[in-house]
Design a binder for these strands. Structure first.
Length: 1002
RNA sequence: GCCGGAGUGGCGGAAUUGGUAUACGCACACGACUCAAAAUCGUGCGGGGAAACUCAUGAGGGUUCGAGUCCCUCCUCCGGCACCA
């Protein structure tokens, strides 16, 4: 028998498959078929890299497996052949994109075929071929007819380097996805597909898809649904109205100002209109000018710093409470979302709060947490302070929805912390993360000690004027009474202990009079914490003052739970008749009362498909001076790309400079007209290619509806997660549009989606030319063979994980195949008695094994389940175990043929060869997938783990049918177990059937 | 900042979904074969300990007879989104 020669074998079987058309999908087979699809590649000049075969191998394994289960599988491959790189390369070198692309495709096809994938090559498609893009243009016209394709002047993302328009999705951090140049804004007439028309369906139908959760999340995020209401605010003394969209109608009573986007048309109207009497016209105009000059990127960079200008003299009327509120323009409000105007509720929105802080606007709290907020007031010593300030504070807080506790602390002149803390114990259960603890004077240090003992954290701690009348805070000396000394010590220690409680307190507020001489004592660490910005210290700046022990004014923010703003839903306050309602109910009732319309907004925008490039499918539209914009007649399709075109970028479409292309007769009146010179985004090509595969040669229609009905939707789609939003969203959109047009009968193209994870370079970085860490699969195929590469890529780890390539590990998979080769090739005369014994021994391998049959059955089960759930790495591991155990024992033909069949989907060449060499009947791919005898899995004896107090002490062999009491008895008899039980009392025993016994002893 | 995902030997990764942590592979060490090397085969391989044992799944708590797996707090890394009202 020869050695395993992968080169000969792989060439041989690939030729057989090609000659016998083994993998051509059969249309005549009525039922039981599956469509298994890979994301087709862009045929780049670099050729295949090792990332491509990862997904292709996964679908190939699955396809071959399904075929052995009798399923008729459609498994096609093609080329996403239009696109910028070929055109950019052409600009640099002068090689025509078509020439380059066709060359690249040949290279890709050769590389892919060398890996032995079971594609039905008779269905290959190429999106850059006129026979394909004819139907891309047809698709465009279908959408056009339905009003789903439209042309509009729009600000577009313009890449000055690529000289083209980019979709929002193609602008990453303000720079071009492909060339990293800074993207500019330009006004241009552009073609759009109306993806927004399907926003709700695109969102809703995600529910029924078997897709990876992260992809579903990203799509939901991208569509960005928000439910809310549209409300009109009147402008005082004027006919103008400001229409706003809000998701928080429940907070409308807290709307203390309004903001319009600077580009909002109403702003221009107000400026023109004398009646509106904007007093600061110049300032407003200047602001509008500066914002318009700033690029998207600059706006984002300065996002933190809110800017804006008040429209002096303009006031809006809050329809909820008729209050007159100021109106601003500010660029933190975007024209492109909602109505381009907002009602600002600083108490319940972070951005509004920031803006309000900067412009010193009032903050009005109207929603509080539904869970009752609690406050604990710890007064200092002396009845006076109790009487004076806390009564008032209590009332204030109660009006803000708090439940206020004022523990009756022993009223002594000097604090006794232990006694105080004891008195506080009953209140501990009422304190949660929404609570405020207020410590006045000596209540401060007490509060700190109290928090320290709490198990939960606290919302806010407010320290009020930690003074103690008549005491001298200089270091303790002889003049202090012992009580005074204790007092000083308590406060100082509490202040020192600050760090230990700081993590349990979300916000800390210190209220001191500015001339308080004792601040440093109690707040040394407080100031330090202030630097990190997580609390506020209000020195007495009008927020609060304490005169003769009497509080005269509370800071405004005192009413808020602990943060500056509260964004959650809750219960309404300060909202007139709606007080006490929960947010959700309030929205409905307020809407009814003020006549607001409940609506839904989406973040999703229409899909801009125009590209001012050559290498794409021309948009089939004709412009006639008389008849206007007309679709190209169907009989004229395809509108072919002219070959002799100067495709160097000039900022207009290269096609515009091709006379032969550009000049055309009007299909309606025959007068001279011109063609649209833009081409379509390549994502249009790829959003319907899965339909073309079922009928790739059809030149009468895009696809035969019957064939589509037979094969679609796609049963399994595998590709990279980088297509999470764009490609997958566009393909879903096109599918829905085609359904509504009556061309197909389903609304979701891909029922089941799986992602392959990125394969990183050996250095753990993304493979790229610049890192010099790209691995070319060709080298691996030459050295180790396609089967080894396929196995290696699958064995690397879970399909969806990101994982680094490691060339030195490949050898392990090759060794495995060598062992398979030897195992099958050499006659089964030399069984190793030791191994045979081990195999028959019941405790081999985690127990449960009574020999060869069980091993075979277990492997069939494992491999089958793993293929079904895409865990190819562990399937291979179990095949390795199988070989390891069996390679030196007597083997039956049955075991050998089973091994070959199980391995075939992963390594089709070597298994096909061994099947033939061994003299088994037919071809291996004609065999059916093995089932297994469930009873073979069962063993006569089982292994039971014995634990004492949860620690493993032994493992015992018992008969599979042994009863609990027998097993327990056997377990206790075990020497090692007995030793751990000796002299102890068993207080409990846990028996998990078939697995373990645990004795709990004392 | 927000939304996802992940942290297990020197490395890639397993773990029946709460039940013997480290399967399988790489690397490494030793042995056999060989004049020798490679290849192959065999043995060993988380830390500590002579052993009994004991400590280990990013950190700290919790639930449980029992936690890599469940809950809470935190740290780190990766991916996506980002003024979306």
């Amino acid at each position: 028998m020869d050695k395993y020669n992968h080169k000969l074998i792989e060439a041989k079987w690939q030729a057989v498959w090609e000659k016998e058309q083994t993998f051509v999908a059969r249309e005549e087979v009525p039922n039981n078929h599956a469509y298994v699809l890979d994301m087709f590649p862009y045929p780049s000049a670099q050729g295949l890299h090792v990332g491509h075969p990862e997904g292709y191998t996964a679908t190939d394994i699955y396809s071959r497996y399904l075929r052995m289960r009798g399923v008729n599988v459609l498994h096609p491959m093609g080329w996403d052949a239009f696109g910028l790189p070929a055109e950019n390369y052409a600009i640099k070198t002068g090689v025509h994109p078509r020439e380059l692309t066709w060359q690249n495709i040949d290279n890709f096809r050769r590389q892919i075929k060398a890996l032995g994938f079971s594609y039905d090559w008779s269905r290959e498609v190429n999106t850059a071929d006129p026979s394909y893009y004819k139907w891309t243009q047809w698709l465009f016209l279908q959408l056009y007819k339905k009003g789903l394709a439209y042309r509009q002047e729009a600000p577009v993302n313009w890449c000055p380097s690529c000289q083209t328009v980019l979709a929002n999705e193609q602008v990453i951090d303000g720079v071009c996805e492909r060339c990293d140049s800074q993207v500019e804004q330009r006004q241009m007439a552009q073609w759009f597909f109306k993806t927004t028309a399907y926003a709700s369906a695109l969102l809703k139908d995600l529910d029924g898809l078997d897709w990876p959760q992260p992809i579903l999340d990203m799509q939901r995020n991208w569509i960005g649904k928000s439910e809310g209401a549209e409300v009109e605010f009147r402008i005082q003394n004027s006919e103008f109205r400001i229409r706003v969209f809000t998701t928080r109608l429940d907070t409308i009573f807290g709307a203390t100002y309004m903001v319009l986007a600077p580009e909002h048309p109403l702003v221009a109207s107000l400026l023109e209109n004398q009646e509106s009497r904007i007093k600061n016209q110049e300032e407003v105009k200047k602001y509008i000018k500066t914002t318009s000059q700033r690029t998207e990127l600059e706006r984002k960079a300065e996002a933190k710093d809110k800017t804006g200008v008040r429209l002096e003299g303009v006031e809006a009327i809050n329809p909820a409470n008729q209050e007159r509120i100021p109106v601003f323009i500010a660029d933190y409000v975007l024209t492109s979302y909602g109505t381009g105007a907002i009602m600002a509720v600083p108490a319940h929105d972070a951005r509004d709060f920031e803006f309000a802080k900067k412009f010193e606007l009032s903050v009005k709290e109207v929603v509080v947490p539904t869970q009752k907020r609690t406050a604990l007031i710890l007064h200092g010593t002396g009845a006076d302070s109790k009487k004076n300030w806390y009564q008032w504070l209590k009332t204030e807080l109660e009006q803000r929805g708090y439940q206020v506790f004022v523990p009756d602390l022993p009223d002594s002149q000097m604090p006794d912390l232990d006694t105080w803390l004891k008195a506080l114990e009953p209140y501990a259960s009422s304190i949660n993360e929404n609570s405020i603890i207020i410590g006045h004077s000596l209540g401060g240090p007490t509060a700190i000690q109290f928090v320290q003992r709490l198990e939960r954290s606290v919302g806010a701690l407010v320290l009020v004027a930690p003074t103690c009348v008549g005491m001298d805070w200089t270091p303790i000396n002889a003049s202090h009474s012992s009580e005074q000394a204790n007092c000083i010590r308590a406060i100082t220690e509490a202040a020192t202990d600050w760090r230990s409680v700081s993590k349990k307190i979300k916000h800390i507020v210190g209220l001191f009079s500015s001339n308080d001489p004792y601040i440093p004592v109690a707040t040394g660490d407080l100031y330090e914490r202030n630097l990190s910005g997580s609390y506020i210290v209000c020195e007495n700046r009008g927020h609060f003052s304490e005169k003769n022990g009497e509080v005269t004014k509370l800071p405004e923010f005192f009413g808020l739970p602990y943060a500056e703003f509260f964004v959650d839903y809750g219960t309404l306050i300060n909202s007139g008749e709606f007080n006490g309602l929960d947010s959700a109910t309030a929205v409905k009732k307020i809407a009814a009362k003020i006549g607001a319309k409940l609506t839904t907004q989406y973040r999703l925008r229409d899909w801009l498909i125009s590209r001012q490039r050559y290498w794409g499918a021309p948009i089939p539209i004709i412009y006639c001076a008389k008849c206007g914009e007309l679709p190209a007649p169907a009989k004229d399709l395809p509108v072919e790309l002219p070959v002799d075109v100067d495709f160097r970028p000039h900022g207009e479409s290269p096609l515009a400079r091709s006379e032969s292309f550009h000049n055309v007769k009007c299909p309606k009146c025959g007068a001279p007209a011109r063609r649209e010179s833009d081409t379509m985004d390549t994502f249009v090509d790829s959003s319907w290619y899965f339909l073309r595969y079922v009928d790739p040669q059809n030149n009468q229609e895009a696809f035969d509806a019957k064939k589509v009905k037979q094969w679609l939707p796609v049963d399994l789609y595998v590709g990279g997660a980088e297509h999470a939003v764009m490609h997958l969203l566009y393909a879903r959109f096109i599918t829905k549009a085609l359904k509504d047009l009556g061309h197909i009968g389903f609304s979701e193209p891909f029922l089941k989606l799986r992602n392959q994870g990125l394969i990183l370079g050996e250095d753990g970085q993304k493979m790229s030319k610049s890192h010099g860490n790209v691995v070319n699969p060709d080298e691996v195929v030459v050295k180790y063979g396609a089967d080894t590469l396929r196995l290696y890529e699958m064995f690397l780890g879970p399909l969806e994980d990101v994982k680094p390539w490691n060339t030195s590990s490949i050898i392990g998979l090759r060794r495995f195949l060598d062992r398979v080769w030897n195992f099958v090739s050499f006659p089964a005369t030399t069984g190793n008695p030791e191994k045979q014994k081990a195999l028959d021994s019941p405790d081999r391998h985690r127990g449960n094994d009574n020999g060869l049959n069980a091993m075979v059955a277990r492997t069939i089960k494992k491999v089958t389940e793993d293929i079904e759930s895409f865990r190819f790495n562990t399937a291979i591991a179990s095949l390795m175990e199988f070989i390891n155990v069996m390679s030196s024992v007597q083997k039956s033909d049955g075991a050998v043929s089973t091994l070959l069949i199980l391995l075939y989907p992963f390594a089709p060449h070597i298994t096909s060869e061994l099947w033939e060499q061994r003299g088994f009947k037919g071809y291996i791919w004609e065999q059916s997938w093995p089932g297994y005898d469930k009873s073979a899995l069962k063993s006569d004896t089982i292994s039971i783990t014995v634990q004492v107090n949860g620690k493993v002490r032994s493992s015992i062999q018992v008969a599979a049918r042994a009863k609990e009491d027998e097993i327990v008895k056997a377990a206790r008899a075990d020497v090692n177990v007995a030793r751990h039980l000796a002299g102890k009392t068993i207080v409990r025993q846990v028996y998990v059937p078939g697995r373990l016994v645990n004795f709990v002893v004392e």
